Amino acid sequence: MTMTLAIRPSEMELPDRLATIASNGPTAIAHRLSELDTEWTTGRAVKATTGLLLVAGIFLAAFVDPWWLILPAVAGAALLQYMFFRRSWLTHIFSAAGLRSGAEIENERIALRVLRGDFQQLPTVFQVEDRDAVCRMEGEGGSCVGDECTKIDPRDAATMILEQTGGSKH
């Protein structure tokens, strides 16, 4: 599995890019989704960088000079800042370099899945509860609800949604 470092698209480019991908069909959407699976996030880059600083600092301190222990100290400080604030100075550096946050990547992923039609058959919390009230509205332009439309149990709806969106990892 290869990892890619992708350049951050601007917020204005995302709708255009989504439209272009969608116009190229389901194959283009599937291809872009696989690219998103390998795209590095700012958080992942922060963790990789701090890990590298820790290992390099300990190695250099052991074999060159103890002053190299400054690197693990800086890495630890960066990890602590990242842990408490979710945005550290390293996160800002990687954002400026073009990496996106996990939330930004996930937003694009969900938008692509919606465009592909992955969520069309999922239940909503707005399933019909009161058939009689809806049928009374039929004469006012509303539609009558047949017997096949029933409100789904919220637990069943959540299970179906997790199965369809890949959220249930057993």
Rank of each mutant, 00 (worst) to 15 (best):
I110K: 06
N107Q: 13
T41F: 04
T124P: 02
E13N: 03
G142T: 04
T150A: 11
S34G: 00
I152E: 03
G43F: 03
G139F: 04
G43K: 02
F63K: 15
D16V: 13
E140Q: 14
S95C: 03
E163I: 12
I21K: 00
E140T: 09
G167K: 00
R116S: 12
F94E: 02
S95K: 05
A61V: 07
G102L: 09
R113P: 05
E129F: 06
L71F: 12
T124S: 15
E148D: 13
Q120M: 12
L52Y: 10
I161H: 01
M137C: 01
E108L: 14
A77F: 12
F94K: 04
A111L: 08
K169I: 15
Q81T: 14
G139S: 14
V114D: 10
T159G: 00
A133N: 03
L162I: 03
E140S: 13
I152W: 01
L112H: 01
A48Q: 10
A75L: 02
D37N: 14
F85P: 04
E104W: 03
S88E: 02
R87S: 15
G98E: 09
S34W: 05
S143V: 11
A61T: 05
G139L: 07
D16K: 13
A96N: 09
L52G: 05
S88N: 04
V128Q: 10
T150I: 08
V145L: 02
N107E: 14
R113C: 04
V125S: 15
F85Y: 14
N24F: 05
R8L: 09
P26D: 15
G76A: 15
D156Y: 01
C144D: 05
D130N: 15
F119T: 01
L71C: 02
P26G: 13
S88H: 03
S10E: 09
E163T: 11
T38Q: 14
W40R: 15
T27G: 13
L115V: 06
A30R: 14
R131V: 05
L36H: 07
T4R: 15
P72E: 12
M3S: 11
T91N: 11
A133V: 05
F126E: 08
L52S: 08
G76F: 14
S23C: 05
L162V: 04
T150H: 04
Q120F: 09
E35I: 04
D147V: 05
G57P: 04
S143Y: 10
Q121C: 03
L5D: 10
F63W: 08
I58H: 12
R44I: 01
G117Q: 08
V134M: 11
L33A: 09
T2K: 11
H170M: 10
H92D: 14
C149E: 15
P15D: 08
G98I: 03
R44T: 09
M160K: 02
Y82P: 04
R109P: 06
E11Q: 13
Q164I: 02
C149F: 15
L18V: 08
K169R: 11
M83Y: 09
D147C: 06
D37A: 09
E138K: 11
G167N: 06
I29H: 06
A73F: 12
S95I: 05
A56F: 08
